[in-house]
Write a protein that binds this DNA or RNA. Structure first.
Length: 424
RNA sequence: GGAGAGAUGACAGAGCGGUCGAUUGUGGCGGUCUCGAAAACCGUUGUGCGGGCAACCGCACCGCGAGUUCGAAUCUCGCUCUCUCCGCCA
């Protein structure tokens, strides 16, 4: 949610920013609604003021046992003209609110301008791509050959776009979860949190999934939503809170399953575990003073990168262009990991600064001795576990079909050095 | 699922239908005292919106939504949520 006051004062800046996000200009509509609303409110308030004044006078007159007929008559007249204006005002407020709630965040000036991902800017390329003296297989070929990735059973049980991990690979998923959480807690000072995977509508609204993107997520029969990311429950921890300035920054990390309908993804990544309805992810959340957002984004991105570095995976950091960013973001770095079978980099983490956009939606504020305001929120994957497994399988594959387990993970896997397809 | 209790300011906790936007305590801020600190004492301290250069003024807000009334935190109804007890259950 953007600040209508800011839009009112900077209509052309606002429209220019929207244009960069492929959204048509909206300032004139918004300013118009806002002006009408304030006009109605001003008239309403005059009537209310008179009504309150008359009520006080009646109270005083009655206490003095004076005649109140004239006063009561005027009070009655005033009273009757109020409801119409009230209805008008709440209608305009709702209209303003609805219009604002589907407008995306404004990109920071450091974000490259462009209409889609082709305008994204590569910030750095890190790590060594593996060299193979054979043609590298896809992760699903490797996993199925090892008997550890079972898509047939997944289809039988749940349908397409699910995966079942078995044996050593199931263990690896569990190891990755612990490894990532431990790293973020011990090295980067995040608090480990265990969150619900079902949330209320208000929570989805707070982080920006609703009302605009309801077709992207799954709803339950009792009106709750399956979280598409742990960002939702984690960030909503500060909803309706007034946080003491000295408590900032808040840094939290959580593992969760994530559920996405992938409604618009027909035909993309149909095979394997790149794009499933359910996947595992370790999420990072920061809540900071609004001045500290960009600095914190760098820090958070660094934390996510450290996982890739420890796992020895080659990756690059992309600064997303204005046209490729998510709804709530004002600046986003994607981490893209090297995928040998596709001979390309694929997204494995997305770290976004949302500024005060989410905080305004969910009323998350901070208060210091001499200042107060909406906090700034950030979220980032650290990392998507399913895609991390994909990357490990492909980058560490051997010609005999086995897969080397990255050293950083071995202590979490009873010292195991390779996925062999034998035993569990 | 059954029965009961409750939702008030950052937190705790009062509040006969008429200066109640709200007593009080804690916390915060400022000060007195002190070499300094603690304690004690004094003062101050809600949020949002609108108007004004400003001092300031107005409106709304005591879970949410309706209603009664000239006037509602206080009365009525509906909803939501929380808590306690019983039952069931991982």
């Amino acid at each position: 949610m953007l600040d209508i006051k800011w839009i009112r004062e900077n209509p052309s800046l606002f429209d220019a920013a929207l244009a960069n996000r492929n959204v048509p200009p909206m300032s004139s509509v918004l300013v118009e609604i806002d002006a009408r609303k304030r006009n109605v409110a001003a008239r309403l308030q005059l009537l209310q003021a008179r009504r309150n004044e008359l009520s006080d006078l009646i109270g005083i007159a009655k206490a003095q046992q004076k005649d109140v007929d004239v006063l009561e008559q005027e009070a009655m007249d005033v009273k009757l003209s109020i409801p119409e204006l009230e209805a008008e005002e709440s209608k305009l407020s709702a209209q303003l609110q609805e219009t604002l709630s589907v407008i995306p965040n404004i990109p920071l000036t450091s974000v490259p301008i462009g209409s889609d991902e082709t305008a994204n800017k590569c910030i750095r390329v890190v790590g060594e791509k593996p060299q193979f003296n054979f043609s590298p297989k896809t992760h699903y070929e490797i996993g199925e050959a090892l008997g550890m990735l079972d898509f047939h059973s997944a289809v039988k049980i749940s349908g397409s776009r699910f995966a079942i991990l078995r044996g050593q690979m199931a263990k690896m998923e569990r190891a990755l979860k612990s490894f990532m959480l431990d790293t973020h807690v011990k090295e980067f000072g995040y608090e480990e949190i265990n969150v619900p995977f079902l949330v209320k509508q208000e929570s989805m609204y707070g982080t920006g999934q609703l009302p605009k993107f309801k077709e992207d997520s799954f709803a339950t029969t009792d009106g709750r939503w399956l979280i598409p990311t742990a960002e939702v429950p984690l960030t909503n921890l500060v909803r309706d809170m007034l946080i003491p300035l000295e408590a900032l920054p808040l840094r939290m990390t959580a593992y969760s399953a994530c559920f996405r309908s992938e409604a618009g993804a027909a035909g993309r990544d149909n095979r394997g575990m790149m794009r499933n309805h359910q996947f595992s992810k370790v999420e990072l959340i920061s809540v900071v003073h609004p001045d500290d957002g960009e600095k914190e984004l760098e820090r958070m991105t660094g934390a996510a990168e450290s996982i890739l570095q420890k796992l020895g995976l080659a990756y690059r950091v992309m600064l997303l262009s204005t046209g490729d960013m998510g709804f709530s973001a004002s600046k986003t770095y994607d981490l893209e990991v090297w995928i040998p079978s596709e001979n390309t980099y694929r997204e494995i983490s997305s770290c976004s600064l949302c500024g005060q956009f989410q905080a305004r939606r969910m009323s998350a504020r901070y208060k210091g001795s001499s200042e107060k305001g909406f906090v700034s929120t950030l979220n980032g994957s650290g990392l998507a576990i399913g895609r991390t497994i994909v990357a490990i399988l492909e980058n560490y594959q051997l010609s005999n079909g086995n897969v080397i387990i990255p050293e950083a993970l071995r202590s979490y896997m009873d010292g195991m050095r390779e996925l062999t397809g034998n035993g569990s």
